[in-house]
């Protein structure tokens, strides 16, 4: 979509100063609308709830949600749930990501391993995470293990695919340099393959983290006695819709924070890259 709008936007014509001025003014208006819109929505939402147009059990007002948030925050219950959820996501991501990394390196380096293993992986990749949830519950029960497996499975594929791609994208010209400089295999991996596949790897990590965060919801909704997913389920069963909203917002905020962290590392570690930065 962004590309399309860029293509159709008028090309600035040399010497058309009034046109440029008008474009600037338009951008200012756009910005104003962009920041006013959420405020407007919140105001309408609050009003609709306050005058009793909509049942608060159906749609709580923003203020009720804030109060619900404070209620959970004061007792510390909220942060306990967030901590537990983050812990699960971290363990699941680590297990799935590590396995994916090892397998990606294996199939990346060995054509034979690729021919033997990759087709099966591509098949398994197409199975939606939700579909295997019940199976894993059947095999492992409503245990911590099954939650971690669900998350691990979800975070496996992006890292696997991107590790593989990263290794295969090593520049042959630099590979020749490594041969001329007599790098041994270990040095070739450490000084050539890993750095040149780092951009791919970080992309894989980002995608995987997002998926493990989503899988966490699945895992915790299926059956848990703690965690943000449990909080949402419990609140909805007890007609506390305001707390459901609190849980949903927490998922969004924490997810975005984790993603921003990885993007920060991305910029820090890849500052040597000479690519288009938009």
């Amino acid at each position: 979509m962004a590309g399309q709008s860029e293509m159709t936007s008028p090309v600035p014509v040399r010497g058309s100063k009034p046109g440029a001025k008008r474009a600037r003014a338009r951008r200012r208006v756009d910005l104003l609308i962009a920041s006013a819109l959420p405020v407007l929505i919140l105001a309408v939402w609050q009003t609709v709830g306050s005058i009793g147009l909509v049942e608060s059990m159906f749609l709580p007002t923003p203020w009720q949600i804030v109060k619900g948030f404070r209620e959970l925050a004061v007792t510390g219950e909220l942060f306990q749930h967030i901590g537990i959820s983050l812990g699960r996501a971290a363990v699941g991501f680590s297990v799935g990501g590590a396995a994916a990394f090892v397998m990606g390196i294996w199939t990346g380096f060995s054509r034979r391993a690729e021919d033997m293993i990759d087709p099966s992986v591509q098949w398994l990749r197409m199975i939606p995470n939700l579909a295997i949830g019940p199976l894993i519950i059947l095999w492992f029960g409503f245990s911590e293990t099954s939650k971690i497996i669900i998350i691990a499975v979800g975070s496996f594929f992006p890292i696997y695919i991107n590790t593989f791609l990263g290794i295969r994208s090593v520049d042959n010209k630099l590979y020749e340099v490594s041969r001329v400089l007599s790098f041994n295999s270990f040095q070739q991996v450490r000084r050539l393959v890993l750095p040149s596949s780092l951009p791919h790897l970080l992309l894989g990590v980002r995608l995987s983290l997002a998926i493990s965060w989503l899988s966490l919801v699945v895992a915790e909704l299926i059956g848990a006695s703690s965690g943000v997913g449990h909080l949402i389920l419990y609140a909805s069963q007890n007609a506390r819709t305001d707390l459901v909203f609190v849980g949903v917002i927490v998922f969004a905020v924490v997810g975005k924070a984790v993603d921003s962290l990885v993007r920060y590392l991305d910029r820090k570690w890849l500052k040597w890259r000479d690519g288009y930065r938009g």
Partner: peptide, 27 residues
């Protein structure tokens, strides 16, 4: 190839993630 035969390619072929001094030192 071997360490006793140095090779300077027609294009620089530096490791883009290494600084000048680290490129020279390499391994």
């Amino acid at each position: 190839p071997g360490i006793d035969k140095g090779f300077i390619f027609q294009e620089p072929r530096l490791f883009p993630w290494l600084t000048v001094e680290k490129n020279i030192a390499a391994d």
